[in-house]
């Protein structure tokens, strides 16, 4: 997979598993950074395995993709925990250390641990717009906005 194709696949995979659009994923400005993070923790070979698994099902229907993802990625003892860590990374900007059982079987992942890859990661967490809020300490909604009924934007 070429470098650019690899990144595009990572974005498509990320959009699929977070239920955000590829545009929103690109819009964080963190796509390359996160791909580097995953590479750094589990190595490029395992990242490639994850991306290839997704790449094989991209042309299928949404329903088929979900089922296939469950079987080949989230149901996989090796790739599942990595994919779940990627979901959490996008939602809240923190890479959460892989489970001890995964480490024993497939580790050691040298750069594993719980960490925020860059200060922007926290600020760009996708979760916040999903719940009509903002990351505490950033992207405030403005004086008095909180007195009004909440609104979760629908796309």
């Amino acid at each position: 997979m070429s470098v650019s194709r690899r990144l595009e696949t990572f974005v498509a995979f990320s959009a699929e598993v977070t239920a955000f659009t590829p545009t929103e994923v690109w819009g964080t400005g963190l796509t390359q950074r996160y791909l580097d993070t995953v590479d750094g923790v589990v190595g490029t070979a395992m990242t490639d395995a994850l991306l290839n698994a997704f790449d094989r099902i991209t042309t299928q229907s949404a329903g088929e993709r979900t089922a296939k993802l469950r079987q080949t990625v989230f149901g996989c003892e090796q790739l599942g925990p990595v994919a779940r860590a990627v979901v959490k990374l996008w939602y809240i900007g923190t890479w959460y250390a892989l489970p001890a059982a995964w480490q024993e079987r497939f580790g050691p992942a040298a750069q594993d641990g719980t960490f925020v890859p860059t200060p922007d990661a926290y600020v760009e967490g996708l979760l916040w717009s999903a719940i009509g809020a903002h990351p505490p300490g950033a992207k405030a909604q403005g004086f008095g906005s909180w007195q009004f009924p909440p609104g979760i934007p629908k796309f």
Binding site: E16, V17, T18, A19, F20, T66, L69, F74, A83, R84, V87, K88, Y91, I92, T94, Y96, L127, A130, I131, G132, A133, P150, I152
Partner: peptide, 28 residues
């Protein structure tokens, strides 16, 4: 919300739209 996300992803095994809908429902 970090703990809520962790719980939903790791314990309830939610991803994609089901995860997003669950968080939209619970957190606010």
């Amino acid at each position: 919300p970090d703990a809520t996300v962790n719980d939903a992803v790791l314990k309830q095994k939610l991803v994609g739209q089901r995860l997003r809908s669950h968080l939209e429902d619970q957190l606010p």
